[in-house]
Nucleic acid binder design. Structure first.
Lengths: 361, 361
DNA sequence: ACAAGCCATGGAAACGTTTCCACAGGCCCG
DNA sequence: CGGGCCTGTGGAAACGTTTCCATGGCTTGT
């Protein structure tokens, strides 16, 4: 108790007057032991305040009971929630979570993964800049370490927990089109380092084309513009003809509205906006945000479950994409005739009330 | 490479035709070795794809190079950012982060801490429901494991990284009073499990009294009310006389405005609102949120730094509280005369323009 | 009453690493 | 030319645990 530490099973065995093997059996409830010695060992362990050394155990069992988790950043609530989901699912399984962040840096990604691997993690969960190029990820696979990806589309050799960004983005495009929007834009943050962002654009673009609409404008911005409304406003001002913009995430969608306000544009009258992710605050705003609702928490849970199954000997099996859900919001309305656009009225004016939801998955 | 795994230093030594001791010395650049054998060992290690087993090392060195971190939940961006700060500060130190969440449950708190301890973590960072009652925390202290708290006020026997919630809340009360508000309220979520919430109320109450104002109404709500605007509106409707409400965090402040809207109250004309934390979205809203800005990221970084210093042999030293900053916002205005209140005009009408900021720490 | 089996038990090996120690050879200096 | 001292090297112990195996005593069935 008052000692520095270091009460090993050897101390317990000595205090109980038995061998370490016996003490181990008693404390693990494995093998047999007489009531007598069982009592002595348990008392000794309690009195000495003994607790197992996970390291000793790990060394002998070749399992660290640790799962490594790599995400771009915990400052992004989407990833934080996913990790929370992983954590929740791991509760009670005996596995602990070792986390690492890459800050959206591809080199850091690989380095962090290697670090986790060198820590003898029993399994890995990762969201990366470019999983398809990651040497460390390949290495993990070759070593037979179970790996689950999160947020990424299915990829040869790895299971993943994901939402179909392409399909979700198509849904947004359909909503825009149904309201009569023709000149649209896609506002992207971290386009080069996020396959999610790229997939959303790809889906949006594909559906616009499928609907006979002009290609959406791709507006790429950096961190700085995202958090400085005046700078974002300048960029937005360079795209005057757009009547609806799809932002690659909800935070961006809110920042976008702020920038629009600086330009004197009203949402949704002068410009419609849709986001992605479905963060809860979006629902509470004075003008509720139209967005694609997803559940990062469920994604984390699923990824963790996939790993646990494999750790228990199951075969890797790729589950279907998680469902998403279009959340209607007041940031979305038909374009004001004559404003910005080329003046043509939408081919299909919104006769039906806006669909509340679209399910997929 | 194609093997399951398990290339140990023994294999490297064998391949290089030397003893394991020599291989260890070469690979660690400790002790001496001839250029000849050095070359052979390095080649062998590279060819075999050898990497050290952290477990073997930990067992022998008695240091796991792992730091445990316990927070209530990663779904709360405040804690997620703090962990991100911890993570960032630990980068390059060689320490890895083992995280656990208690979901605001006191029993889970203690269990999780014990779990982390049993994993042989070299140090601990924790935010708990009740650190002063935690047996596991005491145990860690007795074992000589460096511990740093986060978000908690200084506490005998432990260093902590924190912001002075009492003082910050007093600042909010002063801002309210300066604008002429008299009948105020404090909206609290998780009052019983969060000393932060309680301290904020305590400071708010103290300053109201110091300013000769009536005691603020304490409005406690649960998770359910926080995320269902209609239910929150019902509760809010039971407190008709209040002209300004201080919400214990920004999310709550936004939900509160939503509820007010449902009641037909305008913010700030019918009711002023202030939050706490300073989340970024608050700045981007159409009606920017008045709040206390803090930096959870800095808190995490500081906590991590404290631990690293102690792990390098430094003595524990309690740093001063981190600074906070009152962020003015459009949710705050003088009360409309005659509305709700007892009709008396504030003793000190706001002659000076609202102070932009208040610094502390 | 004796063989066969079961139960309780402890010694020892193994896991992967670092480090202490011992040993051998070569060098310098007296 | 011999003693002391570095340098390079490898064997072995230690870290804390689990598990294999051997041992010895006891029970059970014939």
């Amino acid at each position: 108790m008052t000692h520095k530490s270091a009460i090993t099973i050897k101390d317990v065995a000595q205090a109980a007057g038995c061998g370490v093997a016996t003490a181990s059996r008693v404390l693990n409830n494995s093998g047999s032991a007489s009531a007598d010695v069982r009592e002595r060992v348990e008392t000794a362990a309690r009195d000495l305040g003994f607790s197992f050394s996970a390291i000793g155990r790990a060394l002998q069992s070749r399992r660290s009971m640790t799962i490594g988790c790599l995400v771009p950043s915990l400052a992004n609530p989407v990833f934080a929630e996913a990790v929370q989901g992983v954590q929740a699912e791991l509760q009670g399984s005996g596995y602990q979570l070792l986390i690492s962040c890459s800050n959206y840096d591809e080199a850091a990604d690989d380095a962090a993964l290697e670090m986790l691997l060198s820590k003898d993690t029993d399994a890995l969960i990762a969201t990366m800049v470019a999983p398809e190029r990651s040497a460390a990820l390949q290495l993990a696979g070759r070593r037979g370490i179970p790996v689950a990806l999160m947020f990424h589309d299915p990829m040869e050799g790895f299971v993943t927990s994901y939402v179909d960004n392409v399909e979700a983005a198509r849904e947004v495009a359909r909503q825009f089109a149904r309201l009569g929007h023709r000149r649209t834009g896609f506002l992207a943050l971290r386009f080069s380092t996020s396959d999610r962002s790229r997939n959303r654009y790809a889906g949006f673009l594909a559906e616009c084309r499928a609907g006979g609409l002009p290609d959406p404008a791709l507006i790429e911005i950096g961190e700085a513009e995202a958090r400085q409304p005046d700078r974002l406003a300048v960029i937005l001002g360079q795209h005057p003809g757009l009547t609806a913009i799809f932002a690659s995430n909800d935070f961006l969608a809110i920042a976008l509205q702020n920038a629009a306000r600086l330009l004197g544009w009203r949402v949704p009258q002068d410009m419609s906006v849709a986001g992605f992710d479905g963060i809860e605050i979006g629902r509470l705003l004075e003008v509720p945000l139209a967005t694609i609702e997803t559940s990062p928490e469920a994604m984390g849970r699923q990824a963790a479950r996939l790993l646990l199954e494999r750790l228990q000997g199951g075969a890797p099996v790729q589950p279907p994409a998680l469902s998403f859900h279009f959340r209607a919001g007041a940031t979305l309305a038909p374009p004001t005739p004559g404003k910005g656009d080329d003046g043509r009225v939408a081919a299909q004016p919104p006769s039906a009330p806006p669909a509340e939801t679209a399910q997929q998955g």
